[in-house]
Computed example of a mutant assay.
Amino acid sequence: MHRRPPPASRPRPPARGAAAGPRHGLARTLSKLGVCSRSEAARWVAEGRVQVDGRIVRDPEFPIPQAGDVAARLRVDGQPLQGPARHYVMLNKPRGLVTSTRDEQGRDTVYRCFEGSGLPWLAPVGRLDKASEGLLLFSNDPQWAAAITDPARGPDKTYHVQVDSLPTPAQLQAMHEGIEDEGERLSARRITVLREGERNAWLEVVLEEGRNRQIRRLLASQDIGVLRLVRVAVGGLVLGELAKGAWRPLSEQEWRALVG
C-alpha cells in the first residue's frame, strides 16, 4: 500500500526529535529573522505568500526548527529571504503615542514617527506606555534586542519623573527597598530628588528592569501621582537634545556599548 503524499500546500512537519534545538511557529520565525512584525507575518502566511521548503504554508503556527540556516528554507512571494541590513535606532517618543505596530482602537502609534524614512521594519526594544515619553530603541536585530531587555544582563534605564507632591525620604527609601504589587516585587535601583517646587518635584529613577508601568505603580504605593514621565537614558546612551518625535541611527560604538 502506498502512503498518500502530503498536500502541496502543507509540508510535513519534521519528525519529533529529528532536529535539535527549539522550534517556533512560522510567523514568529519570520519576525525573529527581522523580516517583519509577527502580526504582519501571520497575515502574509494566511494570504499564502510564504513558502517553506518550496511549498505554501497557511498556518502561522507551523513549526520551524531553529537549527541550521532557517532563512534558506523560507520564501516570501516566491523570493528567497535576504538577510536585512541591521538597523539600530533611537526615537524621542512623544506623549500620546502607543508603542505598537497597529492599535485596535485606532490610536496613533510610534511608527508614525518613521513615515517616509525608508527604514525597514523595526521592532521596539522595550516599551513606553502611551502617557510616557522619551528614549525608545528600535532594531531588526532580535539578539541585540533580547540582550537590551534581559533583566539580568541588560543596561539600566533612567527616567526623570515629575510628581504631584514632595516625596519624603521615607517614601523614597520604601520605593528603593521595594514593594509587593499584584504578585510582583517592584523596586527602584536608585531614586533621588532632582529638584523641588512648592507643590511638586522632579525625581530621577533608575531601574534595572522595566515591568509594566513599574514607576507609576511604585509611586502609587506611596500615594504619589505622576505628572510627566520621561526616559532619558538607556545605559550610557542619553536622549540629549534629540527633538520630540525625531529619531536618529545609533553609531556602531553606541549600539555595541549597550550590550558590551
Rank of each mutant, 00 (worst) to 15 (best):
H87T: 13
Q66E: 08
A85T: 14
R58C: 15
D59T: 01
P65H: 11
P84S: 02
K93A: 05
V76I: 15
K93R: 07
G78T: 01
Q82P: 09
A67F: 10
F62H: 14
I56T: 15
A71W: 00
P63K: 05
D53A: 05
Q66N: 01
R73F: 02
G83K: 14
D59H: 04
V50D: 04
V89P: 03
P84R: 02
G83R: 14
P63D: 13
R55E: 13
I56Y: 01
V89W: 04
G78P: 02
G83H: 11
L81Q: 06
R58T: 15
A72W: 00
L81V: 05
G78V: 00
Q51Y: 03
R55G: 11
R73W: 03
G83D: 15
Q79G: 02
K93T: 11
G78E: 00
G68W: 00
R49K: 09
Y88N: 01
R86I: 10
V89I: 15
G54E: 10
P65T: 12
A67I: 13
F62V: 03
F62K: 11
H87C: 15
V70H: 04
V70Q: 01
V50W: 01
A72R: 06
I56P: 02
A71E: 05
G68P: 00
P80A: 09
L91P: 14
P80F: 06
P65C: 13
I64W: 11
F62D: 15
V50H: 04
G83A: 15
P80C: 10
N92Q: 12
P84D: 05
A67D: 15
Q51T: 12
R73N: 05
I64G: 06
V89H: 06
G83Y: 08
D59Y: 01
A85Y: 01
P60R: 08
V76M: 13
D69E: 13
D53S: 07
L91N: 10
D53K: 01
P60F: 02
Q82D: 14
A72Q: 03
V50S: 02
A71K: 01
V50M: 00
G78H: 00
D53E: 14
R55D: 10
G54V: 12
G83T: 15
N92D: 03
I56N: 07
R49I: 08
I56K: 02
L74Q: 07
Y88M: 05
L74A: 04
Q66C: 11
Y88G: 08
D53H: 04
M90F: 06
R58L: 14
G68V: 07
G68E: 06
P80L: 02
L91C: 12
R58N: 14
Q79I: 00
F62I: 06
P60I: 04
R75A: 14
P65N: 09
F62A: 11
D53V: 04
Q82G: 10
P84L: 05
L91H: 10
V70S: 03
P60C: 09
L81K: 02
R86F: 09
E61H: 13
D59S: 12
F62T: 03
Q66S: 04
V89G: 08
V50Q: 04
Q51S: 14
R73D: 07
R55H: 14
P65W: 08
G54L: 05
V70I: 14
R58P: 08
Q51W: 02
D69I: 03
V57S: 13
